[in-house]
Design a protein around this nucleic acid. Structure first.
Lengths: 247, 247
DNA sequence: CGAGCTTTTGATCCGAGTCAATCTTCGTGG
DNA sequence: CCACGAAGATTGACTCGGATCAAAAGCTCG
């Protein structure tokens, strides 16, 4: 169990290291966190809007998303999650969950009791600061998504989402040569970009015929990275990954 | 100067108290923060995307907004700011500013050096947690705005924004009887909701003729609060203001 | 092999954008 | 106190990006 968790949480440590060096002592404290590690099927909710969780999730393998629904049943995905992400870290400080979080692919998720996280934050204020920082980066991504959804055309929106996922996956070692796993459905891209499924499909085909993406069998490749970035109006600054991008 | 700042920072304390009781010691530490208080005209940028500030702003009087621009010059407002808000608190942890922040009306702004904020966070971890919490609430608001922009019709979007502003202003004592100051222009509402100015104008007129709002001379009133909430699909849970709403 | 998803395609429609002009407001200077 | 100019609010006419509807074609997996 212990050895399993130590290797399993590697994406988690890697994600934190995208923002700041993690010392050996910090690393061993992180590895010592009590964590219940569970395999979870695709399309399962981990938590739901209105919950008052007493633990946080860490996505260790697989992909997920955060979403909200309007009163009349329309869904907006507010974030995609990749390995290493703590999608509900906010629940440590905010009792009430204002959104739902689910898996998009078969996943491995670690659950850490709030208590244990509070303890490690108390003992290691530097780690608390890194956790804070990850939530601030999430907020920065939300701002960029608002710009994307509110002020870019459909074609550019979809390109932007692909750019972001490639860069974020690259930061946790899950992309190479502008190529990565991409298990999200077009329905999910539609709900993330605020357009309809049919139109997402058309934009993806336009991106294909422009030679900007290859998307087949759950894999995405960007044969023309500069072109894709230009199409998405993508500037990675908002991801605050100086360290990871420099590497 | 000291007495000026102590009374001037009242909205700041009040905002924090919307989320948690502030003890007397915490309050006096907050009042002792070195703060340069400045009057600023309307439509001035406080900070710009790309800056690396060494201080944080507190909006003490007046209204502001955070915004980002696309490469081709379209603006998305990602947040409105009311007295008490710290619109760039994130800069304490994230070097690079990923958005611009400006005033919308004549304002009074306090500037607090990062150093001083880091010091108070070190001495009073409980206050650090409250600061973290305010940034998490901001993120929650971003998620709700994404839902608003991505999945609600123009009429409902505009209603939602009015609901949120009424509740937030009420929380800092700046609204009564569902009525508050409302200095934002229709251009700003357009850039906040992701629609065009012309269409915002039409939606506002629809809201008026539906008897849901009275908007004149920089004042907003909601004669039919339940109706406006219904129109906006507004549920204040995402504001995480149990304390303020209960009061 | 068939059921149930996704993805794709085509046809049609509508919410909202754009353009252009006019009307208000409001602050400023004479 | 009033004329003037600038910015915001309003209105109308026209256009278009993207939604909706419906159906067909691929995939995946029990």
């Amino acid at each position: 169990m212990t050895s399993l968790s130590i290797s399993a949480i590697r994406p988690f440590i890697r994600k934190l290291e995208a923002f700041r060096t993690i010392s050996d002592e910090e690393r061993s404290d992180l590895e010592a966190l009590p964590m219940q590690i569970t395999e979870i099927r695709a399309d399962q909710d981990l938590v739901r809007e209105g919950d008052r969780p007493s633990r946080c999730c860490v996505l260790l393998r697989g992909f997920g998303h955060t979403y909200k629904m309007t009163e009349d049943g329309k869904r907006q995905i507010t974030a995609f999650h990749v390995p290493g992400d703590m999608p509900d870290l906010q629940s440590l400080e905010l009792q009430y969950l204002d959104c739902s979080i689910g898996t998009c692919s078969p996943s491995v998720v670690g659950f850490i009791p709030h208590e244990a996280l509070r303890e490690i934050c108390r003992l290691r204020p530097q780690l608390a600061a890194v956790f804070w920082r990850t939530t601030l980066v999430d907020a920065s991504i939300f701002r960029e998504w608002m710009l994307n959804i509110g002020r870019r055309e459909a074609f550019n929106r979809v390109a932007h989402v692909f750019c972001e996922l490639l860069v974020r996956l690259n930061a946790v070692g899950l992309a190479r040569n502008h190529s990565c796993e991409m298990p999200f459905t077009q329905i999910e891209f539609a709900d993330a970009t605020g357009i309809s499924t049919v139109h997402v499909n058309r934009m993806i085909q336009d991106l294909r015929s422009a030679g900007l993406i290859v998307l087949r069998g759950g894999m995405l490749t960007a044969p023309d990275w500069a072109g894709l970035k230009a199409a998405g109006g993508f500037d990675p600054g908002y991801l605050h990954m100086e360290r990871a991008l420099a590497a």
